[in-house]
Amino acid sequence: MKKIQGRGTLEAVDGRLDIVVNINGADKALRVAPGEYLLDALRREGYKGVKRGCDNGDCGTCTILLDGKPALSCMMFAAQAHRRRVVTIEGLGTPDRPHPIQRAFVETGAVQCGFCIPGMVLAAKALLDENPEPDETAIRRALDGNLCRCTGYVKQVEAVMLAAKKLKAAGRRA
């Protein structure tokens, strides 16, 4: 029997843990293995927008928001998300109702292959939540953990600038 300390004590039954994670605003009961990574659990549950680029915490494509802060889902156990709030890219907006940050990435031409974009959009969201009017340095610092090989980052930095403007014009928080 394995015990994981955190928000309450979890006990593994038959090598499985029953956890509850708030994913994109709704509580979801998940049965996971104690050693299962959050990335694997999320993808298994259908959140395919969370990408696997390195499985080593180096590339940022698996970025989610954990209680509002960017986190690497390949570097934490699913059980560590028990009773916490997870936002994946699917929770931010949909093609029918995209979030202004997602629109800004599209409008500036910041999306090429798009594999890094979900993680980068979420990193941008966390930045704009804290700092609604970031300068280029702040943006570059915030996106520093999200590798992209296609774009040279030029238009992605522009996208975050544009998103900040859009949000301000709409008078809303990210």
């Binding site: 395919k48 890219i89 995209p98 999306v111 090429q112």
Partner: peptide, 16 residues
């Protein structure tokens, strides 16, 4: 012109 697949990619719905 906006990239035809960009929105789906930005929303994580495009399928790799």
């Amino acid at each position: 012109v906006e990239k035809v697949d960009a929105l789906a990619l930005a929303c994580g719905t495009a399928q790799f």
